[in-house]
C-alpha cells in the first residue's frame, strides 16, 4: 500500500472545487459580478440572491482560514459513495465560518487532529489530504486543520489509514 503511494498522481476528488497547491490550497467559489455575493460550490448561470438577476460570475479563491462553527466525529461507516478505508477509521467533520464570505463551509478535519482539542470559534486553515486512492491516483480533498497545529512539524498524511 504505502510502497506505491509515492508514484501515484494526486488529483482532486472533485475537479474545480479547490486547488491542491501544497502550501496555499484554496476552495474555489464564484462571485456574482452584479451583487458580489459568494457561492460555494460555484454558481455559474444565475445569481441565487432573489433581488439580483446577475448571470455573470468571477471565479474566486475563498478565504483559506476561518473559525469553527461546530464539529462532530462520525464513528460509523457511512454508506457508499463514501470510500471508506478498510478497516473503517472514525473521522471528524467541521463546519467552518468564513468571515469575508459570510458563509459556513463543511470539510473533514485533517488527519491526526484530536477532536477533543477542537472548540467552537477555533481558527482553522484549509489543507488538502488524500480522501481515497485507486491503482493510479490519489484522490485529494480539502480538510480543515487548527492553525495552532500547523506550527508543529508538518507530517504528511499516511498512505494507509
Amino acid at each position: 500500500m504505502t510502497a506505491t503511494t509515492e508514484a501515484k498522481a494526486r488529483v482532486p476528488a472533485m475537479e474545480g472545487w479547490f486547488s491542491i497547491d501544497e502550501n496555499q490550497p484554496h476552495l474555489i467559489g464564484t462571485q456574482c459580478t452584479s451583487c458580489k455575493s459568494y457561492f460555494f460550490p460555484k454558481e455559474t448561470f444565475f445569481c441565487r440572491n432573489p433581488r439580483c438577476s446577475g448571470d455573470e460570475f468571477d471565479e474566486v479563491e475563498l478565504s483559506r482560514t476561518g473559525k469553527i462553527w461546530s464539529y462532530t466525529t462520525n464513528h460509523y461507516q457511512p454508506p457508499a459513495p463514501y470510500m471508506a478505508p478498510d478497516p473503517f477509521v472514525p473521522y471528524t467533520i467541521a463546519a467552518v465560518a468564513l468571515d469575508i464570505e459570510g458563509m459556513v463551509v463543511l470539510g473533514q478535519v485533517a488527519s491526526g487532529v484530536d477532536p477533543d482539542e477542537l472548540s467552537s470559534g477555533m481558527e482553522v486553515e484549509l489543507v488538502v489530504e488524500k480522501l481515497y486512492e485507486d491503482d493510479e491516483n490519489e484522490f485529494m480533498v480539502w480538510k480543515w486543520r487548527p492553525i495552532a497545529a500547523s506550527s508543529q512539524p508538518n507530517t504528511p498524511p499516511k498512505g494507509d489509514n
Binding site: A13, S70, Y71, T73, P78, P79, I93
Partner: peptide, 27 residues
C-alpha cells in the same frame, strides 16, 4: 449534492445532527 456529500465528506444525515448538537453544547 446529496451524492457528493457522501463521497467527499462522508456526511450522512447524523453528521448534520451532530453539528447542531455540538453547537448547543458550545453555545
Amino acid at each position: 449534492p446529496d451524492w457528493l456529500r457522501f463521497r467527499l465528506l462522508g456526511a450522512a444525515n447524523p453528521t448534520y445532527f451532530g453539528l447542531y448538537a455540538r453547537r448547543r453544547m458550545e453555545l
